[in-house]
Protein backbone atom coordinates (compact mmCIF):
# COMPACT_ATOMS: atom_id res chain seq x y z
CA UNK A 1 0.00 0.00 0.00
CA UNK A 2 1.64 3.21 -1.04
CA UNK A 3 0.90 6.61 0.37
CA UNK A 4 0.00 8.97 -2.39
CA UNK A 5 1.49 12.29 -1.33
CA UNK A 6 0.31 14.05 -4.48
CA UNK A 7 -3.24 13.05 -3.73
CA UNK A 8 -3.00 14.54 -0.27
CA UNK A 9 -1.63 17.80 -1.62
CA UNK A 10 -4.41 17.86 -4.19
CA UNK A 11 -7.27 17.05 -1.91
CA UNK A 12 -6.47 19.34 1.00
CA UNK A 13 -7.23 22.56 -0.89
CA UNK A 14 -10.39 20.95 -2.23
CA UNK A 15 -11.54 20.01 1.26
CA UNK A 16 -10.66 23.44 2.60
CA UNK A 17 -13.16 24.89 0.15
CA UNK A 18 -15.72 23.28 2.37
CA UNK A 19 -14.31 25.07 5.41
CA UNK A 20 -16.50 28.07 4.78
CA UNK A 21 -19.61 25.93 4.94
CA UNK A 22 -18.35 24.10 8.02
CA UNK A 23 -17.73 27.37 9.82
CA UNK A 24 -21.08 28.80 8.77
CA UNK A 25 -22.81 25.73 10.14
CA UNK A 26 -20.79 25.98 13.33
CA UNK A 27 -21.21 29.66 14.13
CA UNK A 28 -24.79 30.05 13.03
CA UNK A 29 -25.96 26.97 14.96
CA UNK A 30 -23.91 28.00 17.97
CA UNK A 31 -25.45 31.47 18.06
CA UNK A 32 -29.02 30.27 17.59
CA UNK A 33 -28.50 27.30 19.87
CA UNK A 34 -27.06 29.43 22.70
CA UNK A 35 -29.92 31.90 22.45
CA UNK A 36 -32.35 29.00 22.56
CA UNK A 37 -30.46 27.57 25.53
CA UNK A 38 -30.89 30.77 27.52
CA UNK A 39 -34.64 30.70 26.88
CA UNK A 40 -34.84 27.05 27.87
CA UNK A 41 -32.79 27.72 31.00
CA UNK A 42 -35.06 30.53 32.14
CA UNK A 43 -38.06 28.29 31.53
CA UNK A 44 -36.44 25.44 33.40
CA UNK A 45 -35.57 27.45 36.52
CA UNK A 46 -38.71 29.57 36.45
CA UNK A 47 -40.42 27.48 39.12
CA UNK A 48 -43.61 27.46 37.05
CA UNK A 49 -44.56 23.98 35.94
CA UNK A 50 -46.12 25.05 32.67
CA UNK A 51 -42.76 26.54 31.66
CA UNK A 52 -40.33 24.10 33.19
CA UNK A 53 -42.16 20.93 32.12
CA UNK A 54 -42.10 21.64 28.36
CA UNK A 55 -38.47 22.70 28.66
CA UNK A 56 -37.57 19.47 30.43
CA UNK A 57 -39.39 17.39 27.84
CA UNK A 58 -37.66 19.22 25.01
CA UNK A 59 -34.24 18.73 26.58
CA UNK A 60 -34.96 15.07 27.30
CA UNK A 61 -35.97 14.37 23.70
CA UNK A 62 -33.12 16.23 22.04
CA UNK A 63 -30.47 14.80 24.33
CA UNK A 64 -31.93 11.30 24.19
CA UNK A 65 -31.98 10.81 20.42
CA UNK A 66 -29.09 10.69 17.94
CA UNK A 67 -28.43 13.93 16.12
CA UNK A 68 -28.32 12.05 12.84
CA UNK A 69 -31.92 10.95 13.36
CA UNK A 70 -32.87 14.53 14.21
CA UNK A 71 -31.27 15.71 10.98
CA UNK A 72 -33.09 13.05 8.97
CA UNK A 73 -36.43 13.85 10.58
CA UNK A 74 -36.04 17.51 9.69
CA UNK A 75 -34.63 17.09 6.21
CA UNK A 76 -36.34 13.95 4.93
CA UNK A 77 -39.28 13.82 7.27
CA UNK A 78 -40.76 17.29 7.50
CA UNK A 79 -41.57 17.60 3.78
CA UNK A 80 -44.03 14.76 4.32
CA UNK A 81 -46.20 17.09 6.37
CA UNK A 82 -48.46 19.42 4.43
CA UNK A 83 -48.43 21.79 7.40
CA UNK A 84 -44.73 22.30 6.92
CA UNK A 85 -44.87 22.65 3.17
CA UNK A 86 -47.36 25.44 3.45
CA UNK A 87 -45.75 27.30 6.35
CA UNK A 88 -43.58 30.41 6.14
CA UNK A 89 -40.59 28.33 7.24
CA UNK A 90 -40.75 26.20 4.12
CA UNK A 91 -38.09 28.11 2.15
CA UNK A 92 -35.66 27.37 4.99
CA UNK A 93 -36.74 23.80 5.58
CA UNK A 94 -36.68 22.94 1.91
CA UNK A 95 -32.95 23.54 1.69
CA UNK A 96 -30.41 21.13 3.17
CA UNK A 97 -28.47 24.06 4.63
CA UNK A 98 -31.52 25.38 6.43
CA UNK A 99 -32.39 21.93 7.72
CA UNK A 100 -28.87 21.37 8.98
CA UNK A 101 -28.87 24.70 10.83
CA UNK A 102 -32.27 24.00 12.35
CA UNK A 103 -31.28 20.51 13.48
CA UNK A 104 -27.90 21.54 14.88
CA UNK A 105 -29.36 24.59 16.66
CA UNK A 106 -32.21 22.66 18.26
CA UNK A 107 -29.80 19.97 19.39
CA UNK A 108 -27.15 22.33 20.74
CA UNK A 109 -29.80 24.37 22.53
CA UNK A 110 -30.76 21.35 24.61
CA UNK A 111 -27.19 20.51 25.61
CA UNK A 112 -26.10 24.07 26.31
CA UNK A 113 -29.13 24.81 28.46
CA UNK A 114 -28.15 21.92 30.72
CA UNK A 115 -24.59 23.24 30.81
CA UNK A 116 -25.85 26.68 31.84
CA UNK A 117 -28.12 25.08 34.41
CA UNK A 118 -25.11 23.32 35.89
CA UNK A 119 -23.36 26.67 36.07
CA UNK A 120 -26.31 28.31 37.79
CA UNK A 121 -26.51 25.49 40.33
CA UNK A 122 -22.80 25.90 40.98
CA UNK A 123 -23.16 29.45 42.24
CA UNK A 124 -22.57 29.47 45.99
CA UNK A 125 -25.86 29.72 47.84
CA UNK A 126 -24.31 32.16 50.30
CA UNK A 127 -23.71 34.70 47.55
CA UNK A 128 -27.33 34.63 46.53
CA UNK A 129 -28.36 35.04 50.17
CA UNK A 130 -26.01 37.99 50.65
CA UNK A 131 -27.52 39.65 47.59
CA UNK A 132 -31.01 38.97 48.91
CA UNK A 133 -30.07 40.34 52.33
CA UNK A 134 -28.87 43.53 50.63
CA UNK A 135 -32.30 43.96 49.14
CA UNK A 136 -31.69 42.97 45.52
CA UNK A 137 -34.79 41.63 43.75
CA UNK A 138 -34.87 38.12 42.27
CA UNK A 139 -34.29 39.50 38.80
CA UNK A 140 -31.40 41.68 39.99
CA UNK A 141 -29.82 38.79 41.85
CA UNK A 142 -29.93 36.67 38.70
CA UNK A 143 -28.50 39.32 36.38
CA UNK A 144 -25.75 40.77 38.57
CA UNK A 145 -24.70 37.86 40.74
CA UNK A 146 -25.82 34.46 39.44
CA UNK A 147 -25.32 34.97 35.70
CA UNK A 148 -21.74 36.34 35.68
CA UNK A 149 -20.54 33.57 37.98
CA UNK A 150 -22.55 30.87 36.20
CA UNK A 151 -21.10 31.85 32.84
CA UNK A 152 -17.56 31.50 34.14
CA UNK A 153 -18.38 28.12 35.69
CA UNK A 154 -19.98 26.91 32.45
CA UNK A 155 -17.03 27.74 30.23
CA UNK A 156 -15.20 24.41 30.30
CA UNK A 157 -18.30 22.36 29.50
CA UNK A 158 -19.41 24.96 26.96
CA UNK A 159 -16.13 24.77 25.10
CA UNK A 160 -16.49 20.98 24.96
CA UNK A 161 -19.92 21.46 23.47
CA UNK A 162 -18.56 23.80 20.81
CA UNK A 163 -16.09 21.10 19.82
CA UNK A 164 -18.95 18.58 19.69
CA UNK A 165 -20.96 20.92 17.55
CA UNK A 166 -18.07 21.31 15.17
CA UNK A 167 -17.83 17.55 14.87
CA UNK A 168 -21.57 17.30 14.26
CA UNK A 169 -21.32 19.67 11.31
CA UNK A 170 -19.69 16.77 9.49
CA UNK A 171 -23.07 15.04 9.51
CA UNK A 172 -24.32 17.68 7.11
CA UNK A 173 -22.55 15.63 4.49
CA UNK A 174 -25.24 12.98 4.88
CA UNK A 175 -27.86 15.35 3.51
CA UNK A 176 -25.93 16.36 0.38
CA UNK A 177 -24.14 19.37 1.79
CA UNK A 178 -20.59 19.84 0.57
CA UNK A 179 -18.83 20.75 3.75
CA UNK A 180 -15.30 19.44 4.25
CA UNK A 181 -16.49 15.92 4.96
CA UNK A 182 -18.87 16.00 2.03
CA UNK A 183 -16.09 16.98 -0.33
CA UNK A 184 -13.81 14.35 1.17
CA UNK A 185 -16.37 11.63 0.57
CA UNK A 186 -16.74 12.56 -3.06
CA UNK A 187 -12.96 12.51 -3.50
CA UNK A 188 -12.75 9.09 -1.88
CA UNK A 189 -15.56 7.80 -4.07
CA UNK A 190 -13.57 8.84 -7.14
CA UNK A 191 -10.11 7.80 -6.05
CA UNK A 192 -10.64 4.84 -3.71
CA UNK A 193 -7.96 6.33 -1.43
CA UNK A 194 -9.64 6.60 1.96
CA UNK A 195 -6.47 6.73 4.00
CA UNK A 196 -4.89 9.72 2.31
CA UNK A 197 -8.06 11.73 2.07
CA UNK A 198 -9.68 10.92 5.39
CA UNK A 199 -6.48 11.14 7.39
CA UNK A 200 -5.68 14.59 6.01
CA UNK A 201 -9.25 15.64 6.74
CA UNK A 202 -8.76 14.37 10.27
CA UNK A 203 -5.73 16.62 10.65
CA UNK A 204 -7.75 19.62 9.49
CA UNK A 205 -10.43 18.90 12.09
CA UNK A 206 -7.80 18.47 14.79
CA UNK A 207 -6.42 21.89 13.96
CA UNK A 208 -9.91 23.36 14.24
CA UNK A 209 -10.45 21.63 17.58
CA UNK A 210 -7.15 22.96 18.84
CA UNK A 211 -8.08 26.50 17.80
CA UNK A 212 -11.41 26.29 19.58
CA UNK A 213 -9.78 25.00 22.76
CA UNK A 214 -7.10 27.67 22.70
CA UNK A 215 -9.67 30.43 22.27
CA UNK A 216 -11.74 29.22 25.18
CA UNK A 217 -8.65 28.76 27.31
CA UNK A 218 -7.89 32.42 26.73
CA UNK A 219 -11.45 33.47 27.53
CA UNK A 220 -11.44 31.39 30.70
CA UNK A 221 -8.20 32.92 31.84
CA UNK A 222 -9.54 36.41 31.35
CA UNK A 223 -12.73 35.66 33.21
CA UNK A 224 -10.88 34.09 36.12
CA UNK A 225 -8.60 37.02 36.90
CA UNK A 226 -10.40 37.59 40.15
CA UNK A 227 -10.27 33.96 41.18
CA UNK A 228 -6.52 33.71 41.36
CA UNK A 229 -5.63 34.72 44.88
CA UNK A 230 -2.54 36.79 45.45
CA UNK A 231 -1.99 35.26 48.86
Amino acid sequence: MSFDLDLILDSIPQMLMGLGLTLQLLFLSLAIGTALAIILLLMRISGRWFLSAPAMVYIYIFRGTPILVQIFIIYYGLPQLELVRESILWPILREPFGCAIVALSLNTGAYVSEIFRGGVLGVDRGLKEAAAALGLSTRQRFIYITAPIAIRLSLPAYSNDVVSLMKSTALASTITLLDMTGIARTIVAETYAPYEVFLSLMVIYLVLTWMIQRSFGWIEKRMSRHVRSEI
Partner: peptide, 22 residues
Amino acid sequence: IVFRGTPEILVLLLFYFGSAIA
Protein backbone atom coordinates in the same frame (compact mmCIF):
# COMPACT_ATOMS: atom_id res chain seq x y z
CA ILE B 1 -6.45 14.12 21.31
CA VAL B 2 -7.12 12.39 18.01
CA PHE B 3 -10.32 10.64 18.94
CA ARG B 4 -11.87 13.50 20.85
CA GLY B 5 -11.14 16.03 18.12
CA THR B 6 -12.28 14.11 15.07
CA PRO B 7 -15.87 13.85 13.90
CA GLU B 8 -17.31 10.44 14.72
CA ILE B 9 -18.57 9.93 11.21
CA LEU B 10 -15.11 10.50 9.85
CA VAL B 11 -13.66 7.89 12.18
CA LEU B 12 -16.32 5.45 11.05
CA LEU B 13 -15.71 6.12 7.38
CA LEU B 14 -11.99 5.82 7.84
CA PHE B 15 -12.28 2.53 9.68
CA TYR B 16 -14.80 1.05 7.34
CA PHE B 17 -13.19 1.96 4.04
CA GLY B 18 -9.73 1.76 5.44
CA SER B 19 -10.14 -1.72 6.82
CA ALA B 20 -11.84 -2.90 3.67
CA ILE B 21 -8.88 -1.70 1.65
CA ALA B 22 -6.44 -3.23 4.10
